[in-house]
Amino acid sequence: MIDVLRILAAPLLWLAAFSAIYGLQGLGCAQGWDATADGPPPLRVLLIGGWGLTILLQAALLWSLRTDRFGASAPFVRRVSVLGGWTGLVASLWSLLPVATTTLCAAEIV
């Protein structure tokens, strides 16, 4: 059962981070966090921080899947879990990139 967790850990981490970051963006836009100077940190800072944390977590997970302590003993499971780790890292870099490069909240259409 632990081998299934090793294989699915990186994609599940990506799924959780994707949902959390884009949910935070929607909440921040709905609450007007991008336009206010007081209150929480600027929305862009929160989102880029979440993106950076996701990248760090994915890289740490990938590194740990390659070690003898946390990696699988079966060669096939080790290869698949490391490939899943790379997939999670690339997916996090690519799918969360718009957080750092695009406008946050669309203007209201009246």
Rank of each mutant, 00 (worst) to 15 (best):
T103Y: 10
S92F: 05
V4N: 08
G23R: 00
A72Y: 05
R66P: 00
A35N: 12
V90P: 03
L57G: 09
F18E: 05
V99R: 01
L43C: 05
R66V: 08
G32D: 06
A16L: 15
A100V: 02
L96D: 02
T36Y: 06
A107W: 07
L47D: 04
A106V: 13
R6Q: 15
W63M: 08
V80T: 10
W86H: 04
W63S: 09
R69I: 10
V77G: 04
A91G: 02
L61C: 11
S81N: 01
L13V: 14
A10M: 11
L24H: 04
L46K: 00
R66I: 09
I21P: 00
T102W: 09
P40H: 11
L24Y: 02
T36G: 03
Y22F: 14
T67W: 04
C105L: 08
L93P: 02
G85T: 04
V110A: 13
A74N: 13
D3N: 15
W14T: 01
T87Q: 06
L43Y: 01
V45I: 14
W14F: 15
P41Q: 09
L53Q: 03
T103G: 15
W63Q: 06
L65S: 03
L65K: 04
S92E: 05
A20C: 07
A9D: 09
L96Q: 01
A9Y: 12
V4W: 13
L15F: 14
R66W: 06
L62I: 10
P75V: 05
L24C: 03
P98S: 07
W94L: 12
G26W: 01
L57M: 13
L12R: 09
G26E: 09
G26N: 11
R44M: 10
P40Q: 11
D68F: 14
L53C: 11
V4Y: 12
P40T: 12
P42M: 03
L12W: 13
A60M: 12
L97K: 00
S81E: 01
P40D: 06
T36V: 11
G49T: 03
L15W: 10
G88F: 01
A91M: 06
Q58V: 03
G28W: 09
G52W: 08
G85R: 03
P40S: 12
W33A: 04
L89M: 05
G88W: 02
L53Y: 10
V99I: 15
T102D: 10
L13E: 09
A106W: 09
R66T: 13
L43R: 02
L5I: 15
V77I: 15
S92C: 07
I21S: 05
A35C: 09
S95Q: 08
W51V: 09
V4K: 10
T87R: 01
L15N: 03
V45E: 11
T103S: 14
L93A: 10
T36A: 13
R79V: 06
L8S: 15
P11L: 15
S73W: 06
D3S: 14
T54N: 09
V77E: 04
S73D: 15
G84F: 07
L43A: 07
T87I: 14
W94C: 02
L43T: 02
F70Q: 07
R78K: 12
L12H: 08
A59T: 11
A91K: 00
F76E: 12
G32I: 07
V77M: 07
A35P: 04
C29Y: 07
G50Q: 01
W33C: 03
A72V: 02
A10V: 09
